[in-house]
Design a binder for these strands. Structure first.
Lengths: 207, 207
DNA sequence: TGTGTAAGTAAGTGACTACTTGCATTACCT
DNA sequence: AGGTAATGCAAGTAGTCACTTACTTACACA
């Protein structure tokens, strides 16, 4: 069965040319398959590309943040790095998908799953930082999360087009954004400000 | 002469449908003009859309930041607000343009003028903050600028698609990003840390 | 040996696309 | 009144697109 080859070919062609540019002929050529096989397997171009999109969104695994922070700078930097890598590997297809929200809103919806998940994870982690006494100042976790993720996202999408406006080198960018955020939140030197009752183990994990 | 009506119609259609979806028929209808007039005025669809893009990039005016900071939080917040507004007003066309970098790199190039300019302005302003003693800690202006602009950019592009992940309400988002950045840089309470020799007037403006 | 399934070949359909040609109309300037 | 430039209308061209029909090949399994 050439289903999988067609699916990944479709994803590749879509990443390069977008929906309208993904002609069935191009996809068939890329998959090394006769054009008709596509229609027999998927019924229509629309159905094929929809399935290809779902296929790649499901295969995406995100780094997880610990429920109990132990080393905020290290943990957050690793998470940021993996998030950046994830976005950079898919930046072409993400740009295409974002460009077609108006015309194909349902396909963009399935693409928003990953960032929503990431935002949730990050918010929880930041809340845990506060809970465990790493942060004493007041702050809005959602704003902080949006700021870090936004910086990483913009970098992953825009660096190829205008490298001058982003910090060099690429490998250290995620770390620099992360450190800026931690300084904004008042987390420094790997030292906790207060010894919270949750310091070793939180009484209850949030449901 | 219907040139201008055609140009703005082309920009609108492009923002909705992208390059491939911007058929000459659609543009003509949107402009209330016969399809032929387009070809007589611009020669080809490609030339028309190129001119339309240049037209709207030139008409973009960005808020300016003062050479000598007086009230960092106020000045930066106003700048962030205007930058956010600028991007939100154009988010559809920006998404389309970004989605077509691979296929039409020259058109994307002209779109990168505004962010490059903004990044420069912001970097200079942040450097001035340091020069005038508002910031004592070490920091990389480019990273800081990329972080703020990235947060604003992502918000402007993504809020419509996934409002839950961004701080509410929209009107205060730019201010929250700005305050986070200022806290990261150690600028607080509207008070200068040191009285720099440049406090009243810098000896020389950077060329 | 027969049957079913996944794939290929060849040809074509109707709709749409950028762009052209030829001719008629309008509006404005002198 | 006459000339000129901008615009409109009708029709058409060559190409591409998604998708279809009808027929063939290859292989697996019973």
């Amino acid at each position: 069965m050439k289903r999988d080859e067609i699916l990944s070919a479709a994803a590749g062609v879509f990443a390069q040319h977008g929906f309208r540019g993904s002609t069935t002929r191009r996809i068939a050529d890329a998959a090394g398959v006769n054009e008709i096989t596509i229609f027999r397997q998927f019924g229509s171009k629309e159905a094929l590309i929809r399935e290809a999109m779902q296929h790649i969104t499901q295969s995406a695994g995100l780094e997880t943040l610990p429920d109990v922070p132990a080393d905020p700078e290290r943990e957050l930097t690793e998470w940021s790095d993996s998030f950046m890598l994830h976005l950079r590997l898919r930046n072409s297809i993400i740009r295409k998908t974002m460009g077609e929200i108006e015309e194909r809103p349902d396909m963009s919806e399935c693409a928003s799953y990953v960032p929503k998940q990431a935002s949730n994870d990050l918010c929880h982690y930041l809340a845990a930082l506060k809970r465990d006494g790493w942060i004493t100042e007041k702050f809005d976790p959602k704003s902080a999360a949006a700021m870090l993720m936004g910086a990483i996202f913009s970098d992953a999408m825009g660096r190829d087009m205008m490298p001058e406006v982003f910090p060099q080198p690429l490998e250290r960018a995620a770390r620099m954004y992360t450190r800026l955020l931690l300084r904004a939140l008042g987390v420094e030197n790997g030292a906790r400000k207060t010894t919270s009752k949750h310091s070793k183990r939180p009484k209850q994990l949030s449901a």
